[in-house]
Design a binder for these strands. Structure first.
Length: 574
RNA sequence: GGUGGGGUAGCUCAGCUGGUUAGAGCGCAGGACUCAUAAUCCUGAGGUCGUGAGUUCAAGUCUCACUCUCACUACCA
């Protein structure tokens, strides 16, 4: 047994997340956390909302709300959406929490003492009408390259050229439309990532168990030459910049820390909050001098977050010179794409977590999204694929298997696990199948290879159907009830095994299956043991145990549903 | 523009350090079975692995060029 710390990239506060966010960090992290718990590891799964920054302020402003209230409301909405998707966070915190304020200040002070933070002056566009500095992409104007009139300050959407907002012709504020904008000097704190580049490169090169995506992005940034990064912004909403005694820092009035500085620190702060709520020991997860040296720390995130987790946050951690736990494995995902493009909150493209649950249960989404996780590539979401996953994998292969054998047992064997029968070829085949597939399944989970783990899970379910075809208890029943009994008994044991294996992925269905089979909690873990242990799984249920046939586990998705959803969500348009 | 991915059966994707007839699921065709959610099981058809050249006894796998596509490009997060 080992200690496994799991964090999922913090979902940003400005709205309920879409399925791409779910599929690319929170869901796989949850599946992994659940599987590791079942294997007997001590798991702590931490997540939180990322609440600071310009988009939060503007989103609150758009609905005429105080930003703190807006964030509190959205935090609750996201927490609820997570709970409805059965995400088993041990703690779901907030980056605006007092603990994170304190810890962020701590890191800033110690990094400055260590010479890794310095003040520099840069130029930024200020909008008088809005009374605020504008991040580059909130300045629009005419592109100096192609004359496109709505070019963003960071990049022109028309010609694709990278821009500096200062170069825009006729610049205006994208927030208010005001043309009363000017360039002003502004001082900021910079994190000297460049000073850490050699250490980071050594660390990245030595990293084990990262997908190529994570390593290649990290090395790309290092190869291009790691630049120092501003870690403060001209904003009101955020963690203010203070001196060590808590007094305001000179010249940093109206400035706060950049979200990407404080958000990863929230992983630690949320653990502190978890500890104070539960009586847990946060230091044993984060301080290598207090027991965290044997923690395995895995971070889940989309590819856009890799640079921050593989370079910036480690700069904070290593640069502090304090014994903080550094991430061991970064599991990075590509995007789920939506009919050729990205899911987009602003353009309302795609399906959002709350809407998804209006049209299908969480199990359906969990299975489809994890079985088609964007691991190696961007993964295309289509309604047809979703329908096929649910109908074929869940309803036909798993659901129907559970249904056919439990109903048969109820009908012919009084709903009790029957005794009798001789194990033969079919049983031997089944055992061999499980002896090769279950260890493979475990190793896919341990390696966080989710698509492969799901394919293996499906193959195990299919093996159940194949076994029943070979054993054909309904044929034997006519001449030899005992021989029918063994097929039914093994089938029921398989139902139980399938339920146990399904727990991390489709927890609701797993619960229904294991409940119908009357399996106590204690017997639902993943302690399969060696080959003999696996062989014993097929005949583990006590003879005479009463079982019931669960209600239909998965309702099929009809073509008419697909047509309706495509219409409603705009998918399937060409 | 620069950098990094990717382009493999109708669809969604596997193919590790180059090595016999390129794989899976879905879909499709045929057959079997009848316990079951018209479910399941078996068999089969389908690919000159983006294009062109090169290295090699041997290339989906390595090199170069080209092409298409996605992402990143540091003040969106």
């Amino acid at each position: 047994m080992s200690k496994i710390l799991i964090t999922s990239a913090l979902p940003y506060i400005n709205g309920v997340k879409h399925l791409g966010n779910l599929a690319g960090s929170m869901l796989p992290a949850d599946v992994y956390a659940r599987a590791m718990r079942l294997m007997g590891h001590e798991v702590l799964y931490i997540c939180a909302t990322d609440e600071h920054g310009t988009p939060a302020e503007l989103a609150a402003q758009a609905v005429d709300m105080d930003v703190a209230k807006y964030c509190a409301q959205m935090h609750d909405a996201q927490k609820q959406a997570g709970a409805q998707f059965k995400l088993t966070f041990d703690y779901f915190g907030r980056s605006s929490a007092p603990s994170n304020h304190a810890l962020t200040q701590h890191f800033a002070h110690i990094l400055e003492e260590n010479g890794l933070i310095e003040e520099r002056v840069s130029q930024q566009v200020y909008s008088k009408a809005d009374g605020r500095f504008l991040p580059d992409r909130y300045v629009e104007g005419t592109c100096p390259n192609c004359d496109f009139e709505k070019a963003r300050g960071d990049q022109c959407d028309n010609c694709g050229k990278l821009l500096d907002p200062i170069d825009l012709i006729y610049p205006y504020s994208a927030v208010s439309g005001s043309k009363d904008v000017e360039v002003r000097d502004t001082n900021h704190l910079y994190l000297k990532q460049s000073a850490m580049a050699d250490d980071l490169r050594k660390w990245v090169n030595a990293a084990q168990g990262w997908p190529p995506l994570a390593t290649s992005i990290a090395l790309k940034w290092l190869d291009e030459g790691l630049r120092d990064r501003a870690i403060t912004r001209d904003l009101k909403w955020g963690i203010p910049v203070t001196n060590k005694d808590g007094s305001p820092r000179d010249g940093f009035d109206g400035k706060v820390f950049y979200v990407w500085f404080d958000a990863p620190i929230e992983y630690i702060a949320a653990t502190q909050d978890w500890a104070s709520e539960t009586g847990g020991d946060w230091e044993s997860w984060w301080r290598t001098d207090k027991g965290a040296d044997d923690v395995q720390y895995v971070q889940f995130m989309g590819k856009d977050n890799v640079a921050f987790h593989a370079l910036s946050f480690p700069t904070t951690i290593i640069g502090s010179g304090e014994p903080w736990k550094l991430v061991d494995q970064i599991k990075a995902f590509n995007w789920v794409t939506w009919y050729g493009g990205k899911f987009s909150t602003s353009e309302k493209r795609g399906v959002f977590m709350d809407q998804a649950l209006d049209i299908a249960p969480s199990d359906y989404w969990r299975w489809h999204l994890i079985a088609n996780a964007p691991e190696g590539n961007d993964a295309a979401f289509t309604w047809e694929e979703f329908q096929a996953s649910v109908n074929s994998d869940l309803a036909n292969v798993l659901g129907n298997f559970v249904n056919r054998i439990t109903k048969y047992c109820v009908g012919k064997f009084d709903g009790k696990v029957p005794d009798g029968g001789q194990a033969g070829e079919a049983e031997a085949w089944l055992i061999t199948e499980l002896q090769t597939r279950i260890p493979q399944l475990i190793s896919f989970y341990e390696a966080r290879e989710f698509r492969k783990a799901m394919a293996e899970t499906r193959a195990i379910w299919a093996a159940g159907n194949e076994y029943l075809t070979q054993a054909a208890p309904w044929t034997h029943y006519k001449t030899d009830v005992d021989q029918a009994a063994i097929g039914v008994r093994y089938g029921l044991n398989l139902v139980t095994l399938f339920g146990i294996l399904a727990q991390p992925i489709i927890p609701d269905a797993a619960e229904k299956i294991l409940g119908a089979m009357n399996i106590p909690e204690l017997n639902r873990t993943w302690n399969f043991g060696d080959a003999d242990g696996i062989a014993s799984l097929v005949d583990a249920l006590p003879i005479g145990l009463e079982i019931s046939a669960p209600e239909v586990l998965f309702t099929k998705i009809e073509d008419t549903d697909i047509a309706e959803w495509s219409q409603r969500f705009g998918g399937g348009e060409s």
